[in-house]
Each structure stands twice: as C-alpha cells, then as structure tokens.
C-alpha cells in the first residue's frame, strides 16, 4: 500500500473527529492523575490542525510539509506537555516524509518509528514511567520487528497497535514517574495514563484508516 498526501490529510481529519469524541474520556483520566485537561488540550490542538488542513494545507502535496505543519500547529495551539511531545513526533516524521507526495510502506514504517522516538527523546521518559512512551515504545519496537518478519505493513501495524494497547493498559498498574502525576506516588495506581491513551487512539485510528480506506491508500 501507499499513502498519498491527501490520504495523510484525511487520516489527520479522522484524528480530529476521533479526539472530539474521546475528549471527555481523556479529561476524566487526567482529572484523576493530573489537571484534568488532556482532552481539552488535544481538542484545541487538533481543531487548530483541522483549520490548517482545510486552509493552508488544502493544496499542499508534500507529505513532509503537511506533517511539519501539523506538528507546529499543534504545538503553537496547545503548548502544555503534549504540545512539544506530539509536535516533536510529527516533526520527526516530517523528516522522513520530506519532499514526498506519496509514502510507501517503508516510509510509513520509518515515519511512525521516528514519531515514537521523537516523543521519547523530547520527554526523556522511559517505559514504566507511566507516560505515552509506554504506548509508543512497544509500538515502535513491534512495528520494526514485525515488518522485518512479515514484510506486510498492515499486519505489522496491526501487531504494533496490539503492543501499543498492551503498553497503554500497563500504565494502569504502575506508579507515575513523569509529568504532573509523578507527585501522586501510590495514588496514581489504578488509573490509566491519559497521554498513553491518546497515543494509542491515534495509532489505532491510523490502523483503522488504512484498513477502511484502501481506496485512498493507493
């Protein structure tokens, strides 16, 4: 499969929609662990992205340009913790996608691995700290391994999303070590990390997108 720039933009639009739906749930998780705004923050950021997608980005065909604009727009609209984290992810992805109007399976693999690594590097969090890295690192590792084994992107991505889900679920049972919730100590146990959750939602949305939009993915 391949993903055109308009496919990439459609994917981002689906993220916009998905975030609106999950907004309250993400806030609820953050209320238990942090300051209760993760859903609001994601919504503000993705609404700003939506605006760009419908305007400045409407005619842009360079997937790198699309991705860097998504990252920067998100960052400027939200700041906060997830601004720099997700923005770094999309900007690292943009390096892979630079000057490409179509992303092939290899590009897409590299894109998502760079995304996950970028987030980790920005936040300096490790697996087990109860952050989105708990979702992203196993996801990226599995994606790389599965691609190398099966060569089939959709299947590999599906494996990776399963690993992401497992990682997300694991955040329930651990004590937070990064971000606001790190001050909670034991009281953080039992609640799933909001960032780990939103990261999983984005990845699983991508899986769903490539599965159901084979028309758009060349």
């Amino acid at each position: 499969m391949e993903l055109t720039s308009s496919g990439l933009k459609d994917f981002f639009k689906e993220v916009v929609e998905m975030i609106e739906k999950e907004k309250d749930y993400l806030c609820e998780l953050d209320r238990k662990l942090g300051d209760g705004d993760h859903g609001v923050t994601m919504s503000i950021g993705w609404q700003a992205v939506n605006n760009k997608l419908n305007n400045e980005l409407a005619d842009i065909e360079d997937c790198g340009k699309v991705s860097i604009t998504v990252g920067k727009t998100f960052l400027n609209a939200v700041g906060s913790s997830v601004g720099p984290l997700y923005a770094t992810g999309f900007m690292r992805g943009a390096k892979i996608a630079k000057n490409k109007t179509v992303l092939n399976e290899r590009d897409l693999t590299e894109y998502w691995v760079a995304f996950a690594k970028g987030v980790k590097e920005r936040g300096q969090a490790e697996v087990g700290d109860k952050t989105m890295v708990d979702t992203l690192e196993p996801f990226a590792n599995t994606l790389e391994v599965s691609i190398n084994n099966s060569q089939e992107f959709e299947a590999a991505f599906s494996d990776a999303v399963k690993a992401a889900e497992k990682g997300m679920n694991s955040t329930k049972d651990i004590i937070s070590k990064k971000g606001r919730s790190s001050r909670l100590g034991d009281r953080s146990i039992g609640v799933q990390d909001p960032g780990a959750t939103s990261a999983y939602f984005i990845l699983s949305k991508f899986l769903h997108f490539i599965k159901s939009n084979s028309a758009k993915t060349v």
Binding site: D35, D37, V40, T41, I44, L75, N76, A77, V78, G79, S80, S81, G83, P84
Partner: peptide, 11 residues
C-alpha cells in the same frame, strides 16, 4: 501566556 493550566508554546 498559555492556555488554561497549560504551558505556553515556544512561539
């Protein structure tokens, strides 16, 4: 100036 309870972005 950031959003409510959220750091401003670098810009």
């Amino acid at each position: 100036v950031g959003n409510i309870f959220a750091s401003p972005s670098p810009d």
